[in-house]
């Protein structure tokens, strides 16, 4: 049995990637099982999807904690923590990234591969340049890097199950297949420390009060953010509209009455930028 875990953000197509892989593997004669996990159905929120491929009916109905392969649809998620959990020596890490795979952080003895699926998706007009849908390009790369599925089965699955732009998606899969880069095995880069507090730690760490007071510091909605607000204080009129409209109380007013964004509570919705009367707030892409 091969266990593959996908990490993406809501809207990027991680769930569909895992399902398409299952469909393609089924056409290849495998017995697949695929399911996602997401806490909230929001664009930008981290999404995990699990795919098992076996020669017989899968006998586990539980999430994948010891993946053979981890596929990351956006390099920013490598910082989020949890992505490489359980990835053993000899496992494969495939990241949608412009970077040389040898520079990817990974646990020891994990094979690393990268593919610039964003560029491929944009070139084929899949999604928008701001939120390209990279899943088919990544699956093509996965076929090349792992052999978990054959490219022609993947293309047949795209034809049958991708309702929008099947030809462009097929081309993206072929480009991903050709463009994947594998790092030499011997170079090891340590993964950065994970950011704590992404998951609600049930039981022991719950507050004494009603659960409704659990804040976005505990359930890190800031991990959903793909854009952050930057305020040009030189033009700020201290009207406090941003402070009033922020749905998460992520904006505080300092002693002089100027707004200060507390990024640990900001999910990047952009409402402040829309509401600011003098237009002093710009939404800037997260690195």
């Amino acid at each position: 049995m091969i266990e593959i875990r996908f990490h993406g953000r809501g809207g990027q197509g991680a769930v569909v990637a895992s399902e398409l892989l299952a469909q393609a593997a089924f056409l290849d004669g495998k017995h697949p099982q695929s399911f996602p996990f997401f806490g909230v159905e929001r664009r930008g929120a981290p999404v995990t999807a699990f795919c098992r491929l076996d020669d017989r009916a899968v006998r586990l109905r539980t999430s994948i904690t010891r993946p053979d392969i981890v596929v990351v649809l956006e390099p920013g998620l490598l910082r989020a923590g949890g992505v490489m959990d359980g990835l053993p020596p000899g496992g494969l890490l495939l990241v949608n990234s412009r970077d040389d795979p040898a520079r990817l952080p990974a646990p020891p003895e994990v094979r690393r591969a990268s593919v610039d699926a964003t560029a491929i998706a944009v070139a084929h007009g899949l999604g928008t340049p701001m939120l390209p849908i990279v899943n088919t390009a990544v699956l093509g790369a996965l076929a090349a890097a792992s052999g978990a599925v054959r490219l022609d089965a993947l293309e047949r699955a795209i034809d049958r199950f991708v309702p929008a732009r099947p030809a462009q998606n097929r081309a993206a899969a072929r480009d991903g297949f050709g463009a994947v880069r594998l790092a030499p095995a011997e170079v090891a880069v340590r993964a950065p420390p994970v950011r704590a507090g992404r998951t609600l730690r049930a039981g022991l760490e719950l507050p004494d009060g009603p659960l409704a007071v659990v804040s976005s510091a505990t359930i890190a909605t800031s991990a959903w953010r793909t854009m952050r607000p930057e305020i040009d204080l030189g033009r700020c009129t201290r009207c406090n509209f941003c402070w009033k409209f922020c749905p998460d109380d992520a904006i505080e007013l300092n002693a002089e009455g100027y707004p200060v964004v507390r990024l640990e509570h900001c999910k990047g919705c952009g409402i402040c930028a829309v509401e600011c009367p003098p237009g002093t707030i710009a939404m800037v892409a997260e690195g």
């Binding site: 923590g81 490489m84 959990d85 340590r190 993964a191 730690r201 049930a202």
Partner: peptide, 12 residues
């Protein structure tokens, strides 16, 4: 059965 916090994540 599962009151305890999830196992600490390995940071590789």
């Amino acid at each position: 059965m599962d009151l305890a916090a999830p196992e600490a994540r390995a940071d590789g």
